[in-house]
């Protein structure tokens, strides 16, 4: 049988999916063991037991200086910034994206402007944000929002323009005003795409958040990683990176689930 026609069973597919993760783990264990054999005090590739002990301290014991349990206070701070920044970007994208896509006059006014904004590397404006908004929460939330909003606006505007013209005309023959058309037809039909755009922006949002926290913060997952980097504390950095990955993955799945619940009509025929 040809290779392209050989399909794994459910169990085999699951097994295959696990293989790369296991390989990576084995590679790490081998490298860690080799380094520890040379130098038992090596800090670069700590043995899993050392990492687990460190995670236990981070997740369960209050910090001696602040009294916070670091993992949870860092997570809460980062998630709050991320959620606020993404919420801002989503609201702006919904309003501006629909206006650009639906109203030709607004499109003529703003579509090139937003396209130009989207080309600015967000990290290049981080210094500007730090100068203008200070080193508090506003600059970090602002970077997440500014970094993700232009792409979401453009995505939604394209989506609105791609709606079948027949439906827009049909709504007008039913007596819809421009406003009613936006509210009852275009917004609900574009909403699933907005959730998809949000999911795709989760990765960039984490990037901007960690960059902002690395430069100016007093707590947060990105702040912690860059703080302990000075002590080569790989036993903290590695679990933090894994934790961030898990959070990002979980929020993506959560949004996908939300989309299926909210927009049953947009799902492919069962």
């Amino acid at each position: 049988m040809r290779l392209i026609n050989r399909r794994p069973s459910r169990e085999a597919a699951l097994l295959l999916a696990v293989v790369p993760f296991v390989l990576l783990l084995l590679l790490y264990l081998w490298a860690s063991a080799a380094r520890l054999a040379d130098n038992p005090a090596d800090k670069l590739l700590p043995w899993p037991s050392a990492i687990i002990e460190q995670v236990r301290v981070l997740a369960l014991e209050p910090d001696r200086r602040t009294g916070d349990v670091l993992l949870w206070s860092d997570t809460a701070a980062s998630l709050a910034r991320l959620a606020l920044g993404l919420a801002l970007a989503t609201v702006v994208a919904a309003l501006v994206g629909i206006a650009i896509g639906l109203v030709p006059l607004v499109g003529a006014l703003l579509s090139y402007f937003v396209a130009a904004l989207a080309m600015i590397p967000p990290l290049a404006i981080l210094p500007i944000l730090l100068i203008l908004l200070g080193t508090g929460e506003a600059s970090k939330v602002g970077l997440v929002a500014l970094g993700t909003a232009p792409v979401m606006i453009r995505d939604l505007a394209l989506r609105v323009r791609a709606l079948p013209e027949e439906l827009i005309i049909k709504a007008q023959t039913l007596g819809a005003s421009s406003w009613q058309l936006a509210l009852r037809i275009v917004w609900p039909m574009a909403a699933p795409r907005l959730v998809d755009a949000l999911r795709l922006q989760l990765g960039p949002a984490w990037l901007f958040l960690i960059a902002a926290e690395a430069i100016a913060a007093t707590e947060g997952l990105g702040y912690r990683i860059f703080l302990v980097r000075r002590y080569l504390a790989m036993d903290i950095i590695l679990p933090y990176v894994a934790w961030i990955t898990l959070l990002a993955f979980a929020s993506d799945r959560l949004l996908a689930l939300l989309s299926r619940r909210l927009f049953p009509w947009a799902q492919p025929r069962a």
Binding site: P164, E166, L167, K170, A171, T173, I185, M189, W265, A266
Partner: peptide, 13 residues
């Protein structure tokens, strides 16, 4: 003036 098109005639949502 009402219209019925061949395709995309009703609102899917």
């Amino acid at each position: 003036r009402g219209i019925v098109f061949q395709r995309y005639t009703v609102f899917p949502h």
